[in-house]
Structures are given as structure tokens and as C-alpha cells.
Amino acid sequence: MQSGKEIKKKNEPEKEIIRRIKCGDKEAFNFLIKLYQKKIFRLAYCYFQDEEEAMEIVQETFLRVYQKIKYFTEGRNFQNWIYKIASNLCIDHYRKLHRTNKLINKLKENHTVHTLDERQSSASDFKEILKKSIQYLPYKQKMVFIMKYYEGLKYNEISKIMKISIGTAKSLNHRAIKSLQSIVNRFIRGNKNEKMQKN
């Protein structure tokens, strides 16, 4: 049995790794984790803005991959498949958190409490508001926006992962940007008003 390093050295194609995982090769699975762990973490971290939750999603995703890899047929795009699993887990987890208001409590713990209507003057505050704004986007818009902007996926890839049309993916992304844009506009307007008051 070859080690993970050897596989990496040989730059073995993904298909071969998957075939070996299906045969029960744990080294190959280790290598697969190394390949995708950062990507999945980024997706989950952008979604939750919380390291702990993101790490939980990473572990859960690879557990699912290990359990369901036997159903993965050759010819399919593995990256799309693993993103699909991760995005579904993110959405499910977000719904659960949302239901129990855990997410809101966590945000309150981690950051100073700001409402979107508050006009903050400093740049760091603006970044905080932007982070929070991303958090408050509707879950599908948020997922598409993260995949497009943070993960750099193409619309056709997003459409396959999310099982939506390319048009829908585009529109969801644009809507998300528009929501964020309105926040920026409000912030800039607020800043101007503050400066005028000072003068």
C-alpha cells in the first residue's frame, strides 16, 4: 500500500484516489482530506463566521464522504459532489442554529452588539457590519455569494452544486451583492451626516 506522500508525488488523478478509497485505503482518504479540507473550511467559515462551527462542518462533510463514497459514480465531478455535501450541511446546520437562536447568541458573545441601523464611523466597525450583513443574508443567497466570491466557483458549477439554473445562481448572487451594497450606501451616508454635524 502506498503512502499519502507517494500519491501526492505521483500527482495521481482524483479518480484513482476515489477508487482506492472505495477499496478501503485509509491513506488515500487522508490525502483526499488534505486536498479539500481548506476549501470546505473556507466555505463553512464564510457561512458561519465561526471557527468552531466551520470545523464541525469540515468533519461532518468528510464523515459523509466516507459513508457515501460507495455511491459516488465515476464520471461525476468530485469537487462539485463534496461542495454539495458541505453546502447542504451548512444550510441544515444554519437552520438548526437559527431555530434555536444559537447563532444570534454566539454573535452577541463574539462581537460587540451592533444593529444594522447603527451608523458606525470607524473602518473596523464597517467590516464588522459587513460580516454581520453577510450572516443575515437569506441562506441560499449567502451560499451562492460565498461560492462565487470566496470560493471563486463559476456559475455553472454553482448551479450544479445547488441544483438550480445558471440564471437563478446569477440572480441570487446579484441580489446578495445588492443587499450588501445598500448597507454600504447607508453606512457612507451615515458617515457624511456625522461629519457635517461635527463641522
Partner: peptide, 30 residues
Amino acid sequence: ILFENLEDNKREINETINTINWENIPSMIM
């Protein structure tokens, strides 16, 4: 401005990712 700030956010995320010890993660998952 929005995208510039988003870029900053992206950078921050990448920094967070770099602080994590990824070597231990596969064994943890296993």
C-alpha cells in the same frame, strides 16, 4: 468600496485558515 472591504474580509479569512494546524485535521477526522 464594498468589494474592497470584501477583499479585506477574504484576507482575514485566509489568515484565519493559515493559523489552523491542518496537519492534525486528517487524523482527527479519521
